[in-house]
């Protein structure tokens, strides 16, 4: 925007110099873009090659292929239950995402629209907790997850969601920790967002006698749609990409989501880099597709978190 304003004031000499520097910038960015794209492009290339082809070539992988095929993909797909891993990821990611947005929007609403003595403290507890490295809490959390609740009649819902009387090695356990951790971040973002919304609406509604829940549901949530959409995109990627929790809090190989399952399979893959590449690409596809389709939300989600601080 500033560029158009200034353009008229430039001399021809300046314009020529600017064009030159612009070309230089393009060269710089193109080279860098290629370097950035290279590892993924190479993984894609490897995934289409045949291992025998690479071994037979004296230059190894630094060579042109005799054939390219999707064989590695069919091999991976047929040898390992990838559909199941994608499903596991979905079973964890989607509920965690919805719960996180629901809970954090409620908390953010309550602390940004109403004055409490402890507003700031609550916000700080959430924000600071979100920044802790997960390894700090893993030891006791692991123990906590292994406490059995099967004999506690107080939480009958839990016992239906767990097949071993604990939340260890259960989808519900992973959903819980993701929701908890991410609620910290989302509450912070949403409360900032809500502060920018007009207060008059809420006040007018209250004058009309609307209850707290009505205001939250009917006024605030619709207004927050852009922020919620942006956060949803981010959360999808973060939860999908989680490796640590899935590795630590699951014992069953076939319950693991795709990123952790990949590690589980790596022992069998590693002699054949073409198969590693195919499996990696398959694991990368969902987030990359979501990113490419919803790029706008993605970027605005990240900026929401940082614009105010």
């Amino acid at each position: 925007m500033s560029v158009t304003v200034m353009a008229g004031q430039r001399t021809t000499h300046n314009r020529a110099r600017r064009r030159l520097s612009r070309v230089g910038l393009h060269i710089f960015l193109s080279v860098l873009a290629f370097i950035f794209a290279w590892p993924l492009l190479y993984a894609l290339y490897m995934s289409l090659r045949r291992y025998g082809d690479i071994v037979a070539n004296p230059n190894g992988p630094f060579s042109l292929p005799s054939t390219l095929s999707l064989d590695n993909y069919t091999f991976v797909w047929n040898s390992y239950p990838f559909l199941g891993y994608y499903w596991n990821t979905a079973v964890i990611t989607i509920p965690a995402l919805i719960l996180t947005l629901w809970i954090s929007s409620m908390v953010a609403f309550a602390i940004s629209k109403y004055s409490w003595r402890f507003n700031l403290l609550v916000l700080m507890i959430f924000t600071a907790g979100n920044l802790l490295p997960p390894q700090v809490i893993i030891v006791p959390l692991f123990r906590l997850y292994n406490l059995t609740f099967a004999n506690l009649p107080a939480i009958p819902v839990l016992s239906q969601l767990s097949d071993n009387g604990r939340i260890y090695d259960q989808f519900i356990g992973l959903i819980l920790i993701h929701t908890t951790f991410q609620t910290g971040f989302c509450t912070f973002v949403l409360s900032n967002y809500m502060k920018t919304l007009s207060k008059e609406l809420v006040e007018a509604a209250m004058m009309d006698g609307a209850g707290v829940f009505t205001i939250y549901r009917r006024i605030i949530l619709p207004l927050c749609t852009p922020a919620l959409a942006a956060l949803a995109t981010l959360l999808f990627t973060w939860i999908y990409n989680d490796f640590f929790w899935a590795l630590m809090l699951f014992k069953s190989g076939d319950k693991r989501p795709i990123t952790a399952a990949l590690n589980n399979l790596s022992g069998q893959f590693f002699t054949d880099p073409t198969v590693v590449a195919a499996a990696s690409i398959m694991a990368a596809i969902p987030t990359v597709v979501v990113y490419l389709l919803l790029q706008r939300y993605f970027v605005s989600g990240l900026t929401l978190g940082s614009a105010k601080g």
Partner: peptide, 21 residues
């Protein structure tokens, strides 16, 4: 059957046996 990568199984044996093996 619950199949876990050989090395991972070994890494996690303590937790595994102490939790819900």
């Amino acid at each position: 059957m619950n199949t876990v990568d050989h090395n991972t199984f070994q890494d996690q044996i303590n937790n595994y046996l102490g939790a819900t093996p």
